[in-house]
Design a binder for these strands. Structure first.
Lengths: 194, 194, 194, 194
DNA sequence: TATGAATGAGCATTCATTCAT
DNA sequence: TATGAATGAATGCTCATTCAT
C-alpha cells in the first residue's frame, strides 16, 4: 500500500476489480472468496492485499464506482431537463431510456450497487430524487396533473425501473429502449382506453 | 430421536422460527449465526438441530411460509376478480390494497421472502402472474386500453408494490390504504392533466 | 463463552492454561502457536476459543494469575513485618526467603510475569513497593542506616532477586534458602571485612 | 551482487541499523516489521536484503555490536583494576560508574542486548565475570570480607545494575554517577547503622 | 426435550522474502 | 544501488454441526 503503483500494478488492480465484480454479482458477498478472486485474476492472495486493504474494501470500491457513475448520470439528467424537446413524453422517455442504458451498461456493477450493497437504499433514493425533481418541473409547467404527489410518483418510477432491470434488462430479455417506451407510456397515459 | 414433538417442543420450535425471522430479516442470511438465534430463543445449539436439519432449512421454512401465505393471497385475488364491483378502479384498488396489507402483516417474513431469498424472483413472479391475469380479464372486458402489454404492466405494478413496500410500508412510514390508492390512481389515470 | 462450564470443561480449561504456561515460558509469546497449545492439551483449535477469547486473553490470564498470587504474597509480607522476631536480619531474611520460594513455586508463571509480560515493570514495582515499606519501617525503628534512600535499596533488592531468580532459581541451580541467605547477608552487612 | 559497498550504500546500511535498533528496542523483535524498518529508513524492502540476509541477521548484528562494545568495556575494567587508587570504594565506584555510563550511552542497544536478545544471559554473565574477577582481586588483597562468595556478589551487583538501568537509567530518571554511588555505597557498607 | 463439550473445514489476513528490471 | 510486483507459508479465528449424556 506504501509503494507507488506502476502500470503493471494498475493492470493487476484493474483485473482484481473486474474479477471481483463478477464474483460478487454472481455469488454474493459472503460466498465470494478472496482466494477465488485472486485465482481468477491470475494472482496470489498476498497480492490482493497489495491493492486492497480487505475484502470489504474492494466491495466498497465497486459500490462507490457504481454510485459515482450513477451520480454522473443524474447530473446529466438534471441538465437535460432544461433542453427543449417537442413534448413531455419525449423528454421523460429520454430520461428513462438513459437510466436503463446506464443500468444495462455494466450489469455486474448494477447488481452490486442496486441489490447487494448495504447502501442500495441510499443509492436508489438518489435516483428517485432526480426523477422527482424533473417531474416536479414538468408539473409546475402544467404538463402533469397538479394533484399528483411527485414523491410517490418518483418512487413508483424507480420501483418499475429497478424491477424491470432485474427481470428483463440484466437477464438480457429486453432492451433499454423498449422497456423505457413501455414504462413511460404506461406512466403518462395510464391504463384507461382512449 | 424421531419421537413426535410435544407441546413444549412445539413452543421451542415456534420460538426458534420467530427469532430466526427477526435475525434473518435484520442481519441477512450469512450474518445471522445459529448461535445467536438459539441464544435469543433461550435454547442451546444442539436443540436447534432437534427441530431443523440446518441453518438453510430454517431459512427455507420461513421462505416457504411466506410463499404459501402469498399463494393463499393470490388465490383469493383470483376469486375476487369475479365478484361484482361498481367500477374497475375499485376492483383494482381492492386487489392492490390486499396485497399491501398482506406484505405489511409480517414485515420480517416479507423482507426474507422478497429481498433475501434466492427464490425472491420466482416468488415475485407468482404475484406478477395473478396481477396480470386479473388485469387481462379487465382488459378483455374493455376496461383497459387494448394495446397495453399486460405482461409489462403487471411487472410494473409488482415493481411499484415491491419498492413502496421497502420504502414506506416496512419502515412504517405509510399505510397500505394510502399506498394502494396512489399506486392505483397513477396506474389507471396516468400523469396527464384531466 | 455463553454456556456454563461444567467439571469436564473446567478440566479442559485448566489443561489449556497449564500447557499455555509452559509454551509461553519456553517459546515466548509469538513463537507459541495456538495450534501447539491445543495439540499438547489434547484438544482442537475451536475448543480453545470455547474457553478463551484469544491468544492474548489466555496469556493475559496467566499474567493476572501470577500478579494476583504475587499480591497475596506482598500482603502477607506486610503483615509479617509486625510480627516480633529476634533481630532485623532474621526478619528481612524471612521476607526474602518467602519471595524466592514464591518465585520458585511456579517457574513458568514467574518467567511469564517477570520476563515476558508487558506489565513486567509494573509487577516488579509492586514487589519493590512492599519491600521498601518493610525496610522503611525497620529504618524508622533505627535498625538501618538513616541516610539510606530506601527507594534505591528496595530497587536494588528487587534487582538482585530478579536476577538470581533468572540465573539460579529457575534453572534449579540453587535453592531459595541459600539464595536468600546470601542476598540478605550481603545487603545488611556489606562487603567490608569485620 | 557481490560488489563492494560504496559510500551511498554504507549510508543506507547505517540508516537501516539505526532505524532497526529503535524499532526493536521499542517494539520487540516480532512486532518489528521489516516493512516498517525500511519505510522509516526511506528505502524499499528489497534494498533491505542488499545489506542484511534476514531480519534475524540485522537483529543479530545489533546484538553483536552491543556485545563487542561491552567486551571493550570489560577489558578496560580489567586494566583499571591494576591502577592505583586511594581506597577500595573509589576503585569499585569507578568501575560501576563506567558500566552505567556505557549502558546509558546507547539505550536502544542496551535494551536489545540486555532485555531482548536470546543471548542476554550470556552477555550479562560476561559482565558478571569481570566484576567478579575485580572483586576477587580486592578480596585477596584483604579489602573485602574473605567469607563472601564472590560469584554471588558479582551476580547481585549485575542484578542491581541491570534493574536500575531498566528502572532509572534508560528512562532517564537518574544519571550514571548517582546510581553508581548509591549501589556501591550499599554494597560495600551494607545497611546497618554506623 | 435438552445440553455441555467438542470438532472439521474453511477463510481472511500477515509477513519475510525474492524475482525481474 | 535500487525498486515495483509478487509469493510461500503460516496463523488466528469462526461457524455450522455433532457426540455423549
Amino acid at each position: 500500500m506504501n509503494t507507488e503503483i506502476g502500470s503493471k500494478g494498475k493492470e493487476s488492480r484493474r483485473r482484481l476489480l473486474e474479477t471481483a465484480a463478477i464474483e460478487f454479482a454472481t455469488q454474493g458477498f459472503h460466498d465470494t472468496k478472496v482466494s477465488t478472486i485472486v485465482k481468477k485474476a491470475g494472482l496470489t492472495q498476498p497480492s490482493f492485499y497489495l491493492y486492497f486493504t480487505s475484502k470489504e474494501a474492494i466491495f466498497e470500491e465497486l459500490v462507490t464506482n457504481f454510485y459515482s457513475n450513477l451520480r454522473k448520470l443524474t447530473e446529466s439528467l438534471r441538465l437535460v431537463s432544461g433542453i427543449e424537446q417537442i413534448d413531455v413524453s419525449k423528454r421523460v422517455l429520454a430520461a428513462v431510456e438513459s437510466v436503463f442504458r446506464f443500468l444495462g451498461s455494466d450489469p455486474h456493477l448494477t447488481r452490486i450497487g442496486f441489490f447487494l450493497s448495504p447502501e442500495a437504499i441510499q443509492i436508489k433514493s438518489n435516483l428517485t430524487l432526480v426523477l422527482k425533481e424533473n417531474l416536479l418541473a414538468e408539473q409546475r409547467l402544467g404538463y402533469f396533473n397538479p394533484e399528483l404527489d411527485m414523491d410517490i410518483v418518483a418512487e413508483c418510477l424507480t420501483g418499475m425501473i429497478v424491477h424491470l432491470t432485474n427481470s428483463y434488462l440484466l437477464p438480457g430479455t429486453k432492451d433499454s429502449e423498449s422497456l423505457a417506451a413501455q414504462v413511460v407510456n404506461l406512466l403518462i397515459n395510464g391504463m384507461l382506453p382512449k
